[in-house]
Design a protein around this nucleic acid. Sequence first.
DNA 1: CATTCGTGGAA
DNA 2: TTTCCAAGAAT
Length: 360
Amino acid sequence: MKENLQQILAHFHIELFQHDLIQWFQAEKRDLPWRKEKDPYKIWVSEVMLQQTRVDTVIPYFYQFIEKFPTLDALADAEEEEVLKVWEGLGYYSRIRHLHAAVKEVKEKYGGRVPASKEQFSSLKGVGPYTTGAVLSIAYDIPEPAVDGNVMRVLSRIFYITDDIAKGSTRKKFEQIVSHIIAHDNPSDFNQALMELGALICTPKNPSCLLCPVQRHCRAFAEGVEKQLPIKTKAKAPKHVAFRAVVLVNEEGRILIEKRPSSGLLANLWQLPNDEHAPTLNEQEFIKEISERYHVLIRSMERIDTFEHVFSHIVWHIEAYKAKALQLQIDRKTTKWVTADELKQYAFPVIYQKIWQAYE
DNA sequence: CATTCGTGGAA
DNA sequence: TTTCCAAGAAT
């Protein structure tokens, strides 16, 4: 914990480690779609998608996204509604809202070219310490550390570091280490190799140390403590919230949808009418709440199913209903009556997709 | 520094 | 089934 960089790196063979690591990476790296070319825009998109998201999940989204927005300018010129729809189901939606804003700024201020300056790139929305290092090193071969969860796990074991990687301050320690051991002649492969090693060999639970290309550099393996690292405190238990939602159908067979607020959970996505902000005790109160909030006259209502949806920090328990209603007011700013076909062009959270499917 | 932000897959 | 988590950033 208190040991300094000199002590951590004592007896560590930097050049040999770089060689072993990069040699392995070049031979064993996965053939991923964002590794086909060095377009800074595509590298950037992939890095944003990969934040807290598995490679297998990202791959189809990446293809779909690049097909729809092949260039930075194409994304900058797109409507947010269209951009959100392509991101639908991927989660952490502030990522795409920030990326969209950042790309617009790059188009305006830098002529559409992703800045290779650490100062300029890291100042863009949604671009933090990791993404800065990842894009600058992979796309521009600039020797900046790109410290993610993989890198902290791998280096915790290599150097037998027992700091809690759940704490924000710990990342800086690893960035210092990487700054001193990064291969200046190939920072792109070096950074990617650390992450690839974490994904394929130096895994969280049962690391494949016998197959590890840098086993001879690893202090944790030498001490037989690789499974006890890294140190990471548990996340607190999520809070449970229960409410109701309803598929409201008017006389024309149109369905009522509502745009969520521009900040907070699932920002700017669409949803079905619900009492999330004023949970009701019984069905009568629910009918009253929905009638007043959405300006409709409920003619009949019936529960169709119950759902549970788990977020990182919240668990939603939703009772889903279907109802026939008289439309007492035309569309407002945040609500629309749409046909089942039109519904498909709006971005919905997964939980509301499930409810819609249950209704159909 | 702690909390808020999704989702689906693996152990 | 439960737990943990996956190439983090903003607040």
